[in-house]
């Protein structure tokens, strides 16, 4: 545990070195930030290691860039269009990734890809806001989750693939089973 903290201390110091260039006066603020960052990282339970393969990263990066460009153009079009065509809504999604870095990475990626963001999550239950609430949005989440699983070399929990139907979705539907939820409908977890 102490060893991993040391590794992260070095990682944060390296990040600061790249950002500020190796200038000594920059280390007055930087050194403090590095120490605080390491303490916070350890305190928040960042001890679980994550193994990302280079091959996984080479597969994930083009996907992320491609999705960002396509989604970004779509959102820009909707923002500038005179009629402002939107059909926003929340969906629930059941995360198949195991707890830890892969799950956090997935939840954050959802927020970075245009058209979706993670509004709330607790354990495996994730609530996502969609700018255009359609079946494609849910499928995009499943694709992203599979890519993240491959990136981290972890397996999805196959007992609950993709979205899960809490109550109202029709059985026998091949589309990812997600349901519209209202804000405040479920209990709020911290």
């Amino acid at each position: 545990m102490r060893r991993i903290s040391l590794v992260w201390l070095l990682v944060f110091a390296l990040v600061w070195t790249v950002l500020a260039a190796p200038r000594f006066d920059a280390w007055v603020a930087g050194g403090l930030a590095v120490l605080l960052g390491t303490a916070l990282h350890t305190g928040l339970g960042g001890r679980q290691g994550a193994r990302i393969s280079l091959r996984g990263l080479l597969g994930f990066a083009p996907f992320f860039v491609n999705q960002s460009v396509r989604g970004g153009i779509d959102v820009a079009f909707r923002a500038l269009h005179p009629a402002r065509p939107l059909d926003p809504g929340f969906i629930r999604y059941r995360i198949g990734l195991p707890a830890g870095p892969a799950r956090i990475f997935f939840v954050n990626c959802i927020s970075l890809l245009p058209g979706t963001f993670s509004a709330q999550f607790h354990d495996r239950e994730l609530r996502v806001h969609l700018l255009t609430d359609d079946a494609e949005g849910a499928r995009k989440l499943e694709t992203l989750e599979e890519k993240v699983a491959r990136l981290f070399g972890v397996r999805l929990d196959s007992s609950a693939p993709g979205g899960h139907p809490p109550s109202s979705s029709s059985p026998g539907d091949d589309a990812p089973s997600v349901s519209r939820t209202l804000p405040g409908e479920e209990d709020h977890h911290g």
Partner: peptide
């Protein structure tokens, strides 16, 4: 994520 979560917790209404 933080802004969305706190909006939900405060019951800020959503369009659509």
């Amino acid at each position: 994520h933080i802004l969305a979560r706190s909006s939900l917790e405060q019951g800020v209404p959503a369009a659509g």
